[in-house]
Amino acid sequence: MSRMNPYQPIELAGSTLWLLAEKAVYWPEQQALLIADIHFGKAAAYRRLGQPVPHGTTDTNLRQLDDLLARYACRQLIFLGDFLHAPESRAPSTLARLAEWRAQHAQLEVTLVRGNHDRRAGDPPRELDISVVSEPLLLGPYALQHEPDPHPTHHVLAGHVHPAFQLHGRGRQRLRLPCFCIGARLSLLPAFGNFTGTMTVAAEDNWQIYVIGDGEVWPLRRPAPVRPGICP
């Protein structure tokens, strides 16, 4: 099946970003793939605490990453925080699987901007060869962060929120979909991990919203500013 909009190119702070329907951002100029909130080992952490969660979430996450790396020419892969979910996520099987995956992409430069979960879970093991930095990571016009805090000079690209948007239609129809929120000084990426929830963002917060559904990215027309001043 051919998809109409597998990605949406946008101009942001003087550079071009592609918003991908796979809930990631591709930055052609830097040949960089940006991934927020992948939460590796979340299921493993639950199992360690006596809650049965099926296997397979890590493999699915990695397979989706592989697909993206195959489709878009990437020199670097940057995680915007929450790489590992919890201290209990450092299960041998999960770490072994990650190491195996890393070996298949040895040329790739991988960076992690530490998020709130990473601070508890600890940095990824050294053999994964991931350079870990504290936020913000300044790159080109952007401040790459986990938490959506404003930055004085750079446009912020952040995760943490797991944004979703609720569409309303005639006949009382509603659909809740993960989304990108693009603001004037700060933008949010959807959560990439497939065992993560979402949080609904409000329309009046003056975002330009791009919802994701059925393998496509759908821009919503920029709403009129309802509450000026809140604009991030």
């Binding site: 239609g169 005639r170 979909l177 329309a203 009046e204 059925d214 759908w218 919503l220 309802v226």
Partner: peptide, 27 residues
């Protein structure tokens, strides 16, 4: 199809965003 539903809602939203601004539940 999900895509058809999204397309319709996005189009309605466009219409609503016209002169009067965005009103999610104006009915």
């Amino acid at each position: 199809k999900l895509a058809d539903r999204i397309r319709r809602m996005v189009a309605e939203l466009d219409k609503a965003a016209g002169p009067g601004g965005y009103q999610p539940e104006a009915n």
